[in-house]
Nucleic acid binder design. Structure first.
Length: 798
DNA sequence: CGCACCACAATTTTT
DNA sequence: TTGTGGTGCG
């Protein structure tokens, strides 16, 4: 039982601490002050969650656990209480209860960018001491942990990290060796399967056993690939991205003293974007927090858009069950967008079933309604976006206030043309990334092999680029020999003349290994940037590109030079001038980290990449069925929910103006298709939308006449997609009316009998000129595409 | 072994 | 439309 004195003391202390966070709202303060035990913060888009994280850390560093416990400091007396209550300058000292050392805090994010931003904001708020806080990504935290103790798992100290492309080429090679067809075993799928197995803590042997028990032919094959993959990685002293986390978890499980060490160290663990974690990451976070039990996760189930890469929304949905004493705080006040935008986003996401439930609100006023534009095609769409941006710019906005979001990278090209024509400065984020370009990968592979010659995979990548006359066949033989002897490919090649099988390529191989040895020796005494110059010189790589006629090769040469500045800037920023240091860093680095918001240009990116960002004006283009939501999601309720969350993310990026654009027909992958407007547009109540029509475009006549809407299948009894509120706000979409007078009476879904093809059903109607392209699913010959006007002559309704 | 040409397919992405 | 991978020829 608390004494009166204790009670007053705690109250005064809490009041004082609260006052330090005046600029936050009540919910946010609550989250900042709740330092002890498990805490789930459900932070809606734009609700200031990073601010909460920063302030929470500030609270810990300043006041320790004082705001969330009833312990009194030693020697607490009336005099102290008086000081606290009057709030003198010493009061702050008295309010603190064992301030937390910065290095006892672990804040985990997903991207380097988020981690850097966190670090920067912490430093701004807390000064120098912020540098000792572990604010890093899951992967970099694991690397730091593994660098100390990876030897306990049998890895060498300087293990290398394979990125996705490395893993993929290894998988491909193994598939080929095991004579598995890439058509029936697509590398991506196999990788995904292996990744999921790792996520489920299943090693290759366990996976294969399970497959064998189930007598699953396919999984047995994949299990064999998994086994070989694991073996190869291990002998190359390499880990892939999943291994970084899986091995850390294994290390913590197996080695009690290692676990104790880290558990004791990390008094407070915070995880950002918790909705994007997978099972492994959950295990890691909960293990690390297992000592003190102070785990705080922040996330938004409505913004979970990475299921396809293994994130389980379950983690956030079941956090409260995992931690029974958990407290949950919802942050629903939005500081980013105006009312119409938020209401639209709320209305869309309400149609999802699997969610915790949250409604964003703002006191910023309704703002402008959302603009909806129906474009003729993707050119018109791009033109509309460009001219709207020009108009906005001429009214004083900056280019960088505008972002264009799309579902697929392939959608950016028309926009780029339009922007170039209009003279709008722009940047495209994403697409093929710098570090994924083949020339960059080649040179990094050289550096990796110099650092660790046992890296067979990267060795075979570079052995013949530039061409050295060492072909695939020779490398296969060498690889076999290496496997027989249990040594590295490099060592076989360096002794090639001793093998009868390698007689022909032996000289070339030796020449190559000698060159690599020389580079290795050079690396001993020189910095990475000097080594890089030497590398370009000795291999002739740059010369090969520069002497090429092809423009693309010239661009590649630029990238090769660009890589050097990456090396230099790493050395400058980290103060580390070892090759190993650079390689470890670069493996976990992407260009997104380069995105600087200061450059004044319009930004284009996918909706996925936009997560976490905000812009005064946002355009979401391609709002059409089978583009967004994508074709693959239609008819798949779970996928559809993910698409809807993506839509929610896209809409909530906008601060003041939001434009949705759909095109009546569009060319994609060299094919023209017409799709009805996205269902997500329908899900936005009409009062939030202003419709914009192209010149001379009679909205309701032509939209129906052209079959812009197909039948709304949501009313069908067996349709899997069920909105939680059955309320199509837009009038139920009409069936396409067989247009002008002469057009025969057929519409979508009709059962027909064709003289030549027999019975069928019309599955798609695409307006084309004053005719329709129809797709008919026939019973016998399958799907046929016909022009309706002509086909109608031979066809009748059944 | 290296290069040129043709067929084919094609979300989303971080580490 | 673009990029990639396989095949065939010199």
């Amino acid at each position: 039982m608390m004494t009166n004195f204790e009670h007053r003391f705690c109250e005064a202390r809490r009041r004082l601490i609260r006052a330090r966070f005046q600029n936050l709202n009540d919910r946010q303060i609550e989250a900042v002050l709740a330092t002890e035990g498990p805490l789930l913060i459900l932070a809606g888009a734009g609700s200031g969650k990073t601010t909460v994280l920063i302030n929470r850390i500030a609270n810990l560093l300043r006041f320790g656990r004082a705001s969330d416990c009833t312990e009194l400091p030693a020697g607490a007396d009336e005099a102290m209480l008086h000081l606290l209550e009057t709030g003198g300058p010493e009061a702050e000292e008295l309010a603190a209860l064992e301030p937390v050392a910065p290095w006892r805090i672990l804040a985990i994010t997903f991207t380097n960018k988020a981690a850097d931003e966190l670090k920067a904001r912490l430093e701004r708020m807390l000064g120098e001491s912020a540098n000792d806080i572990w604010a890093c990504t899951f992967h970099s935290a694991c690397v730091r942990i593994l660098r100390r103790d990876a030897d306990k798992l049998g890895y060498g100290e300087n293990f290398t990290i394979y990125d996705t492309a490395d893993s993929q080429s290894l998988i491909k090679r193994i598939l080929k060796e095991q004579e598995l067809d890439e058509k029936s075993f697509p590398p991506r799928t196999v990788m995904g399967e292996i990744s999921r197995a790792k996520d489920a803590r299943m090693d290759a042997a366990a996976y294969r056993q399970q497959a064998q028990r189930a007598n699953d032919f396919r999984r047995i094959r994949i299990g064999r690939v998994y086994e070989e993959y694991t073996r190869r990685l291990f002998t190359a002293n390499a880990m892939d991205f999943d291994d970084l986390i899986a091995n850390t978890v294994t290390l913590l499980e197996k080695e009690e003293d290692v676990r104790r060490y880290w558990q004791r160290r990390f008094q407070y663990v915070l995880v950002d974007e918790y909705q994007d974690t997978n099972h492994l990451q959950y295990l890691l976070a909960s293990t690390l927090a297992g000592g003190w039990g102070n785990i705080c996760v922040v996330g938004d189930d409505d913004q979970s858009i990475y299921k396809f890469r293994g994130a389980t929304i379950e983690n956030i949905l079941s956090f409260e069950q995992q931690y029974s004493k958990c407290r949950t705080i919802r942050l629903e006040q939005n500081y980013r967008s105006t009312g119409h935008i938020l209401d639209a986003a709320n209305a869309v996401i309400r149609n999802n079933l699997g969610r915790k439930g949250k409604e964003l609100w703002t006191d910023a006023g309704a703002g402008d309604p959302i603009e909806l534009y129906f474009a003729d095609d993707e050119k018109d769409e791009a033109q509309y976006v460009a001219s709207t941006i020009i108009a906005s710019f001429s009214q004083g906005a900056n280019w960088q206030d505008h972002a264009v979001l799309y579902r697929m990278n392939a959608q950016s090209s028309q926009l780029e043309f339009a922007f170039k024509r209009a003279g709008i400065p722009y940047r495209v984020i994403g697409g093929t990334r710098f570090f994924d370009r083949s020339e960059v990968k080649d040179l990094l592979a050289y550096l990796n092999v110099i650092a660790s010659p046992a890296d067979d995979l990267r060795l075979s990548r570079i052995v013949n680029s530039p061409p050295r006359g060492i072909g695939e066949r020779s490398m296969e033989i060498a690889q076999d020999l290496a496997r027989q002897e249990g040594c590295s490919l490099f060592s076989v090649m360096s002794r090639a003349d001793r093998y009868a099988e390698l007689k022909r390529p032996a000289a070339k191989m030796k020449l190559f290994t000698q060159m690599m040895e020389e580079l290795r020796a050079f690396a001993e005494n020189n910095s990475p940037d000097a080594l890089y110059d030497e590398l370009l010189e000795k291999t002739g790589y740059l010369r090969m590109l520069e002497s090429s006629e092809d423009d693309k090769d010239q661009a590649r040469a630029e990238n090769v030079k660009e890589l050097k500045s990456s090396i230099l800037s790493f050395m400058k920023e980290s103060g580390d001038s070892t090759l190993e240091g650079y390689l470890a860093n670069v493996a976990l680095y992407t260009d997104l980290d380069n995105y600087d918001r200061d450059a004044d240009s319009v930004v284009m990116m996918t909706m996925h990449s936009a997560k976490g960002l905000e812009f005064p004006t946002v355009f979401v283009v391609g709002m059409e069925e089978s583009i967004f939501p994508g074709l693959r999601a239609i008819g798949e309720p779970e996928e559809m929910e993910e698409e809807r969350r993506l839509c929610y993310v896209a809409l909530t990026r906008a601060k003041r103006r939001l434009y949705l654009v759909c095109a009546r027909q569009r060319m994609l992958f060299g094919r023209t298709t017409a799709n009805r407007a996205s269902r997500f547009v329908d899900e936005i109540p009409e009062e939030h939308i202003r419709k914009n029509l192209p010149k001379g475009y009679a909205y309701h006549d032509r939209r129906e006449e052209l079959g812009f809407y197909s039948r709304d299948r949501r009313d069908e009894p067996n349709y899997p997609y069920r909105p939680s509120q059955p309320k199509p706000r837009v009038a139920p979409a009409p069936r396409p009316q067989p247009a002008p007078s002469a057009m025969p009476q057929f519409s979508l879904g009709d059962a027909v009998r064709h003289k030549a093809f027999g019975d069928g059903v019309i599955t798609k109607m695409t307006p084309m000129g004053n005719d329709f392209l129809v797709e008919i699913q026939f019973e016998k010959p399958g799907v046929k595409k016909l022009m309706l006007r002509a086909a109608a002559q031979h066809m009748e309704k059944r």
